[in-house]
Design a protein around this nucleic acid. Structure first.
Lengths: 196, 196
DNA sequence: GTCTATACCTCGATAGAC
DNA sequence: GTCTATCGAGGTATAGAC
């Protein structure tokens, strides 16, 4: 199983998958060890205890994905274009990267103060400020609430996607990132266009 | 601790609180027993095993709340008014009834097929069909996606409410059901108003 | 850095008295 | 209907050989 730095990283990656799919308390150190292909004792060489493993797994998984956020907004564009790019990016990321999406949802549900603060500043703060800036043109809406609504809309669609197939007359397109992303973009366009 | 029917109900209520706040696998039968004030063995008199307790707790908690849904839509109104009433109702319910909100989020995250199907038909189906009906007037949008968006927007706002206080310049109003509800209603109004 | 072996605890669940 | 007592499995974590 190669050298230590390798194992350390493999543990973080496999633990992220397990924690995302089962939840922290449902996954034992034995589970992680089995998946990685080492013994439980080895996990305690790399991480002092389970709580530390959970936290470092989270930091590793989130910071890995948050990097791409920079490039989304880095190119100077019109506000509307910037919003569209963000919507497309986040929708695809959450629909297609199930590990990331589920870790985010778990943190929002079960994270303690420190972990939610970390999540907020690492993932949400940058796009949130950009969205506030981009929606500030519409004076009759609270820009912060509107920015929150854009993020909420995307998160909510991902969240309810698992339930939609059980409703009457459901179609696969309702849980397809491309379709949902375009729909969200068109809703935002309507909200932000100057009223008649 | 009174007669059996009473205890049975108390268990369901206290278990709902514990499961909502900690998650199913993080709560032991001993935890539930302690909170109720009985012994673990007694729980097994009322429920055959933990999984059964979890399922019956969920059914009890959801069906209890879903009843109010009928009255929201029962009075014949204009589509716009019906949407407004639904938004106000669901926003307040989710922001103010933390046990219900967290149980719903947990099911969406960790429920198996049967439980998500139950959640979908018990909670989501009725308002969903009503919303489709009420938004069908806007021909240039997919009514089902738009209905999903309304639910998604509300769920998403509740979901990210815990993170908003950690973002720069946050205000208490952003996690207040009244303020958020009105904001959502005004967004929907803009989307559904006939374009210029 | 990884293992074997194990201590100690908490878990879900049951038997049987009251 | 509720209790005491207990079993076996599986949980976190550590000691010490390699």
């Amino acid at each position: 199983m190669a050298d230590g730095a390798q194992t350390h990283n493999t543990i973080l990656v496999e633990a992220a998958k397990l924690f995302a799919s089962e939840g922290y308390s449902a996954v034992s150190m034995r589970d992680v060890a089995n998946k990685v292909g080492v013994t439980p004792a080895n996990l305690y060489y790399h991480f002092t205890d389970k709580d530390t493993l959970v936290r470092e797994t989270l930091v590793h998984a989130l910071s890995e994905r948050a990097g791409a956020l920079d490039t989304i907004f880095s190119e100077a564009r019109q506000p509307a274009e910037r919003i569209g790019a963000f919507v497309t990016w986040l929708t695809h990321l959450l629909f297609e990267d199930e590990v990331f999406a589920r870790l985010v949802f778990r943190e929002l549900l079960d994270g303690d103060e420190g972990r939610i603060a970390y999540l907020a500043t690492t993932i949400f703060e940058r796009p949130f400020l950009q969205l506030i800036d981009a929606t500030a043109g519409e004076r009759r809406l609270d820009a912060r609430l509107t920015a929150a609504s854009i993020v909420a809309l995307i998160l909510g669609h991902v969240q309810i996607a698992v339930a939609l197939p059980y409703l009457q007359g459901s179609e696969p397109g309702h849980v397809d990132p491309e379709t949902v992303g375009r729909h969200i973009a068109s809703l935002i366009e309507r909200v932000l266009q100057p009223p008649a």
